[in-house]
Design a binder for these strands. Structure first.
Lengths: 339, 339
DNA sequence: TCTGGCACTTGCCCGCGCCGAGTGCCATCT
DNA sequence: AGATGGCACTCGGCGCGGGCAAGTGCCAGA
């Protein structure tokens, strides 16, 4: 082992110990717990070098060292391969997810699973509407002058919307409307479908034209202009476990999670399926998330449906978290493929 | 003002000041801030009496007094009438809720509203399925051998469930199935509907009997045996605002909120529409909620659809919270009545 | 290039004493 | 009888200072 390698080994040791103990780690600790085959003095020299590179800092003189965000970054980058979950864990994941009865259930189970495996806050995005394909659109007359539109997409997502019409419809009208819209929508990805819907009023029979115009504009508004992005959260209680890691900003993190927008942006930005993305501390654009790391991935079968991930303190078990996120995303993808 | 009345005035003063300042309040404070027209010595005597009755305690000698749960209880009970919201607030509530586009949206807006008005954690229960009436059940063939059932109830709630059949259905079969089930379900409250569904297999034509049996058992299971109770949470970040009020148990509270079961029980128990129920600290059966107070109410139009409320520290602004919960529930009821 | 040794820095802990808030009680007044 | 002013007492919080120990940086030597 040359000097270069050893220095990195020291960094790794610092990260590992600090993540475990939550306390600055000194040179003595390191030689005691990790057998590097060198003395503490040597480690001290290495640590001085690491500090010069900005990979670690000491909170105050005469305390051990703590990794910086940059230090974590190097640590994560050099993490050769994803350490797979244990067979037992894999079985547990699969068994837990297999019991799900519908999309909602799959997503809810996923967050719970992720939160439990990582002991962090888990986050799962509903399948993005814009990338889905329409399977069916049901039109139900709540009253003669009010319709409920229920959109079912191939991702299993079901969305609803109530429309107030200016006029009264008969059952036959409703059926005609349903057939018309479905003819234009079914089997198309949402982007294409919306274009088709926009043209519906032109071909509609005269007596239905008003209704079709209303309905199609509502559809376009809900599905294209303001496609609802939803988020499932879980394990927020885990934040308090690491309360010490968020000096006073725990509040901000909770607020950011509730905002949803912030998290959705993070997830949207990192959706390579099969590749876990890690954002460490200051790498997050959002002010409120500067104290957190986000480990995320895209999930889905053949196409990416949405993102999922974990939010925690920068001081987190990166290898374990990455493995868990990776595994859960894969199983969720498999399960959704079968639906 | 006789002695009895004054003693209660002292209690009220203690509650008011403690809620504001978060610090034990002494006799001096009281005579300074509330003009009771008596000296501090008199107040001290009254406080001693209040302490004998178990309404207040002093954390340690030479500190002021703090209300006990029993003290809060008396305070709340003697709260003559609900102080209405200011006209501006009422307009804000109405405007904010009026913008909602569907049930989901109404509920989501309600939690946000409640959380903002009370600066506490808000909780809204989805309309209970068992008390709803079926408006429509849509049957969509995802594949020839797999159906999605979409249940729409008069509360505006939309639930879905995927069913794997052992056999393949034609479009005509699906239509027949849809008609059959809707014939049995539509317009009936869920309890009655489930009975009707249970009998469907008996009257089904031979070639559909297998499918009908599967579907009806799935329906009964999902709707009656395990009717899904859902919960919308909001403002959890407010918990940290009052972190000092949950000595170390903030974690437990967050966990209880995530459990949902605990909260659902609380809401289920207190659903008098129009009457706000307050549970103070130890009055909560759940261990984890011993440090919190829950202010809840039932909402709905003519029938009670579900519960909503607020969870916060026992040291909360009861009059204000009660008013907010009351008002929001009323407006939500009005809005849902129009759908 | 590594190592043992050593002086130095500095945060943390602990005990101490002071201060002030708040009380309880009592004699006195109305 | 009820209210009041006075007074002694209690006790938590705070600031101070010394001892302690962890950890470092540096240097001379292998």
């Amino acid at each position: 082992m040359n000097a270069e390698e050893r220095r990195f080994a020291v960094l790794r040791a610092i990260v590992a110990d600090f993540v475990r103990t939550q306390e600055p780690v000194g040179s003595k600790m390191i030689v005691d717990r990790h057998n590097l085959g060198v003395s503490s003095a040597t480690v001290r020299n290495d640590m001085a070098a690491l500090e010069d590179e900005g990979l670690i800092v000491q909170p105050h003189t005469s305390a051990g060292r703590v990794p910086t965000d940059k230090g974590y970054r190097l640590f994560v980058d050099k993490l050769a391969q994803v350490k797979p979950l244990s067979p037992a864990e894999r079985r547990a994941v699969q068994a837990f997810l297999d019991g799900a009865i519908d999309l909602d259930d799959v997503l809810r189970r996923s967050v719970r699973l992720l939160a439990q495996l990582t002991r962090q806050v888990a986050v799962v995005q509903y399948p993005t509407l814009t990338r889905s394909t329409v399977r069916h659109l049901e039109v139900v007359a709540l009253t003669p002058a009010r319709l409920m539109l229920v959109l079912i997409t191939d991702s299993g997502r079901v969305d609803q919307r109530v429309v107030d019409l200016g006029e009264v419809l008969t059952d036959t009208d409703v059926a005609a409307l349903r057939n018309m819209i479905n003819g234009a929508l079914v089997g198309r990805p949402l982007a294409a479908a919306s274009a088709a819907v926009a043209e519906l009023p032109l071909t509609a029979p005269g007596e239905l034209r008003g209704v079709v115009t209303t309905v199609s504009s509502v559809l376009i508004e809900t599905l294209v202009e303001h496609p609802e992005e939803r988020l499932v959260l879980g394990g927020t209680a885990n934040l308090t476990r690491n309360a010490a890691d968020f000096p006073g900003s725990l509040r901000q993190v909770l607020e950011a999670l509730e905002e949803q927008v912030v998290v959705l942006k993070l997830l949207a930005a990192a959706q390579d399926p099969g590749t876990v993305t890690v954002r460490i501390g200051e790498e997050n654009e959002s002010e409120q998330m500067r104290a957190t790391s986000v480990v995320s991935i895209g999930y889905g079968a053949n196409t990416v449906l949405g993102g999922m991930g974990v939010v925690g303190p920068t001081r987190m078990d990166y290898p374990g978290t990455i493995a868990a996120v990776h595994a859960v995303a894969r199983y969720v993808g498999e399960i959704l493929a079968g639906r």
